[in-house]
Protein backbone atom coordinates (compact mmCIF):
# COMPACT_ATOMS: atom_id res chain seq x y z
CA UNK A 1 0.00 0.00 0.00
CA UNK A 2 1.18 3.55 -0.78
CA UNK A 3 0.99 6.62 1.36
CA UNK A 4 -0.45 9.69 -0.32
CA UNK A 5 3.01 11.18 -0.30
CA UNK A 6 4.40 8.14 -2.12
CA UNK A 7 1.67 8.56 -4.71
CA UNK A 8 1.82 12.29 -5.21
CA UNK A 9 5.44 13.29 -4.75
CA UNK A 10 6.83 11.29 -7.71
CA UNK A 11 3.99 12.58 -9.86
CA UNK A 12 4.67 16.17 -8.89
CA UNK A 13 8.37 15.80 -9.54
CA UNK A 14 7.80 14.46 -13.07
CA UNK A 15 4.97 16.84 -13.92
CA UNK A 16 5.76 19.57 -16.47
CA UNK A 17 2.90 21.39 -18.21
CA UNK A 18 0.11 18.89 -17.57
CA UNK A 19 -3.22 20.00 -16.17
CA UNK A 20 -3.80 18.23 -12.86
CA UNK A 21 -7.37 17.89 -11.65
CA UNK A 22 -7.88 16.72 -8.08
CA UNK A 23 -10.88 15.83 -5.98
CA UNK A 24 -11.83 14.72 -2.48
CA UNK A 25 -9.05 13.23 -0.35
CA UNK A 26 -6.16 14.34 -2.56
CA UNK A 27 -7.14 17.99 -3.00
CA UNK A 28 -5.19 19.22 0.00
CA UNK A 29 -2.32 16.68 -0.13
CA UNK A 30 -1.60 17.60 -3.78
CA UNK A 31 -1.14 21.23 -2.76
CA UNK A 32 1.81 20.20 -0.58
CA UNK A 33 3.71 19.24 -3.73
CA UNK A 34 2.38 21.64 -6.32
CA UNK A 35 1.32 25.24 -6.68
CA UNK A 36 0.66 25.53 -10.39
CA UNK A 37 -1.88 27.63 -12.27
CA UNK A 38 -2.66 24.38 -14.10
CA UNK A 39 -3.89 22.69 -10.92
CA UNK A 40 -7.66 22.54 -10.56
CA UNK A 41 -9.49 21.34 -7.47
CA UNK A 42 -12.88 19.84 -8.15
CA UNK A 43 -14.03 20.83 -4.69
CA UNK A 44 -17.34 22.47 -3.79
CA UNK A 45 -18.51 20.92 -7.05
CA UNK A 46 -20.32 17.68 -7.94
CA UNK A 47 -18.96 14.47 -6.44
CA UNK A 48 -18.45 11.72 -8.97
CA UNK A 49 -17.95 13.92 -11.99
CA UNK A 50 -14.28 14.83 -11.94
CA UNK A 51 -13.37 12.28 -14.62
CA UNK A 52 -15.97 13.77 -16.96
CA UNK A 53 -14.63 17.24 -16.29
CA UNK A 54 -11.02 16.18 -16.87
CA UNK A 55 -12.08 14.43 -20.06
CA UNK A 56 -13.60 17.67 -21.31
CA UNK A 57 -10.36 19.54 -20.67
CA UNK A 58 -8.38 16.81 -22.38
CA UNK A 59 -10.59 16.90 -25.47
CA UNK A 60 -10.33 20.67 -25.63
CA UNK A 61 -6.54 20.61 -25.19
CA UNK A 62 -5.41 17.64 -27.27
CA UNK A 63 -1.75 18.67 -27.22
CA UNK A 64 -1.51 18.84 -23.46
CA UNK A 65 -1.74 15.95 -21.02
CA UNK A 66 -4.45 15.99 -18.39
CA UNK A 67 -4.00 14.04 -15.18
CA UNK A 68 -7.10 13.33 -13.14
CA UNK A 69 -6.70 12.23 -9.52
CA UNK A 70 -10.09 10.68 -8.84
CA UNK A 71 -11.28 8.85 -5.75
CA UNK A 72 -12.60 5.30 -5.69
CA UNK A 73 -15.91 6.31 -4.09
CA UNK A 74 -16.23 9.06 -6.67
CA UNK A 75 -15.55 6.74 -9.59
CA UNK A 76 -18.15 4.27 -8.35
CA UNK A 77 -20.75 7.02 -8.60
CA UNK A 78 -20.28 7.36 -12.35
CA UNK A 79 -18.81 4.14 -13.70
CA UNK A 80 -20.25 4.99 -17.10
CA UNK A 81 -17.53 7.64 -17.34
CA UNK A 82 -15.06 4.85 -18.09
CA UNK A 83 -16.95 4.01 -21.27
CA UNK A 84 -17.31 7.69 -22.09
CA UNK A 85 -13.54 8.20 -21.82
CA UNK A 86 -12.88 5.22 -24.08
CA UNK A 87 -15.46 6.38 -26.61
CA UNK A 88 -13.86 9.83 -26.71
CA UNK A 89 -10.40 8.35 -27.42
CA UNK A 90 -8.68 11.01 -25.33
CA UNK A 91 -5.06 10.05 -25.92
CA UNK A 92 -3.85 12.73 -23.53
CA UNK A 93 -5.86 11.68 -20.46
CA UNK A 94 -4.43 9.78 -17.49
CA UNK A 95 -7.11 8.75 -15.05
CA UNK A 96 -5.86 7.87 -11.59
CA UNK A 97 -8.13 6.26 -9.05
CA UNK A 98 -6.84 6.82 -5.56
CA UNK A 99 -8.11 3.69 -3.90
CA UNK A 100 -8.36 4.24 -0.17
CA UNK A 101 -11.57 2.18 0.06
CA UNK A 102 -13.29 4.83 2.15
CA UNK A 103 -15.19 8.08 1.96
CA UNK A 104 -12.30 9.80 3.65
CA UNK A 105 -13.54 13.34 4.00
CA UNK A 106 -16.76 12.29 5.70
CA UNK A 107 -14.96 10.13 8.26
CA UNK A 108 -13.58 7.13 6.40
CA UNK A 109 -16.78 5.16 6.06
CA UNK A 110 -16.20 2.13 3.82
CA UNK A 111 -17.27 2.44 0.20
CA UNK A 112 -19.46 -0.26 -1.32
CA UNK A 113 -17.32 -3.16 -2.44
CA UNK A 114 -14.31 -1.93 -0.50
CA UNK A 115 -11.33 -4.15 -1.20
CA UNK A 116 -13.32 -6.36 -3.57
CA UNK A 117 -13.80 -4.11 -6.58
CA UNK A 118 -11.09 -4.46 -9.22
CA UNK A 119 -10.92 -0.92 -10.56
CA UNK A 120 -8.21 -1.58 -13.13
CA UNK A 121 -10.16 -4.65 -14.25
CA UNK A 122 -13.29 -2.55 -14.72
CA UNK A 123 -11.34 0.00 -16.75
CA UNK A 124 -9.94 -2.80 -18.91
CA UNK A 125 -13.41 -4.21 -19.41
CA UNK A 126 -14.64 -0.75 -20.42
CA UNK A 127 -12.03 -0.67 -23.16
CA UNK A 128 -8.98 1.04 -21.67
CA UNK A 129 -6.01 -0.53 -23.40
CA UNK A 130 -3.52 0.64 -20.77
CA UNK A 131 -4.36 -0.06 -17.16
CA UNK A 132 -2.22 -0.35 -14.08
CA UNK A 133 -2.77 -1.32 -10.46
CA UNK A 134 -0.21 -0.49 -7.82
CA UNK A 135 0.07 -1.26 -4.15
CA UNK A 136 3.85 -1.04 -3.93
CA UNK A 137 5.45 2.41 -3.91
CA UNK A 138 8.70 1.30 -5.56
CA UNK A 139 6.90 -0.41 -8.47
CA UNK A 140 4.75 2.67 -8.91
CA UNK A 141 7.71 5.06 -8.91
CA UNK A 142 9.52 2.92 -11.48
CA UNK A 143 6.53 2.71 -13.82
CA UNK A 144 5.41 6.32 -13.57
CA UNK A 145 7.73 7.95 -16.15
CA UNK A 146 6.51 5.56 -18.84
CA UNK A 147 2.87 6.00 -17.76
CA UNK A 148 3.20 9.74 -18.24
CA UNK A 149 4.68 9.31 -21.71
CA UNK A 150 2.48 6.68 -23.28
CA UNK A 151 -0.63 7.40 -25.30
CA UNK A 152 -3.87 7.38 -23.37
CA UNK A 153 -6.38 7.04 -22.18
CA UNK A 154 -4.45 5.43 -19.34
CA UNK A 155 -6.03 4.14 -16.15
CA UNK A 156 -4.05 3.84 -12.92
CA UNK A 157 -5.48 2.35 -9.74
CA UNK A 158 -3.31 3.08 -6.74
CA UNK A 159 -4.02 1.53 -3.36
CA UNK A 160 -3.31 4.13 -0.72
CA UNK A 161 -3.64 4.25 3.03
CA UNK A 162 -6.75 6.12 4.13
CA UNK A 163 -5.87 9.52 5.50
CA UNK A 164 -7.67 11.95 7.71
CA UNK A 165 -8.60 14.76 5.34
CA UNK A 166 -11.59 16.67 6.58
CA UNK A 167 -14.43 18.22 4.58
CA UNK A 168 -13.42 20.47 1.70
CA UNK A 169 -14.47 24.06 1.42
CA UNK A 170 -13.42 27.17 -0.39
CA UNK A 171 -12.69 30.37 1.44
CA UNK A 172 -10.77 33.53 0.68
CA UNK A 173 -9.99 34.01 4.37
CA UNK A 174 -7.80 31.63 6.32
CA UNK A 175 -7.68 28.84 3.73
CA UNK A 176 -4.10 27.52 3.75
CA UNK A 177 -4.42 25.75 0.40
CA UNK A 178 -3.94 28.30 -2.36
CA UNK A 179 -6.14 26.70 -4.99
CA UNK A 180 -9.05 26.48 -2.56
CA UNK A 181 -9.12 30.23 -1.91
CA UNK A 182 -10.92 31.32 -5.09
CA UNK A 183 -14.52 30.31 -5.66
CA UNK A 184 -15.18 27.38 -7.95
CA UNK A 185 -16.34 29.81 -10.64
CA UNK A 186 -13.20 31.91 -10.31
CA UNK A 187 -11.02 28.80 -10.44
CA UNK A 188 -12.76 27.55 -13.58
CA UNK A 189 -12.44 30.90 -15.33
CA UNK A 190 -8.79 31.21 -14.28
CA UNK A 191 -7.94 27.80 -15.70
CA UNK A 192 -9.59 28.72 -18.99
CA UNK A 193 -7.48 31.87 -19.11
CA UNK A 194 -4.32 29.96 -18.25
CA UNK A 195 -4.98 27.41 -20.96
CA UNK A 196 -5.67 30.14 -23.52
CA UNK A 197 -2.12 31.52 -23.16
Amino acid sequence: MLTKQELLQPLASLRTDEVVVTTMGVVRPWSRFSDSRLDFASADSAMGHVADLALGIALAQPHRRVICLNGDGSLLMTLGSLATVVEAEARNLILFTVENRTFEITGNQAIAGAGRVDFAGMARAAGFSRTYAFDDPACYARALPEILREPGPVFVAARVEPGSEGPLSRSRKGEPVAYLRPSLAESAHRLREALAK
Binding site: G56, A60, A188, R192
Partner: peptide, 8 residues
Protein backbone atom coordinates in the same frame (compact mmCIF):
# COMPACT_ATOMS: atom_id res chain seq x y z
CA UNK B 1 -17.52 22.38 -18.08
CA UNK B 2 -14.16 20.82 -18.90
CA UNK B 3 -14.49 21.58 -22.59
CA UNK B 4 -15.25 25.19 -21.79
CA UNK B 5 -12.29 25.47 -19.41
CA UNK B 6 -10.13 24.08 -22.18
CA UNK B 7 -11.24 26.84 -24.53
CA UNK B 8 -14.07 25.23 -26.49
Amino acid sequence: AGLWMGGR
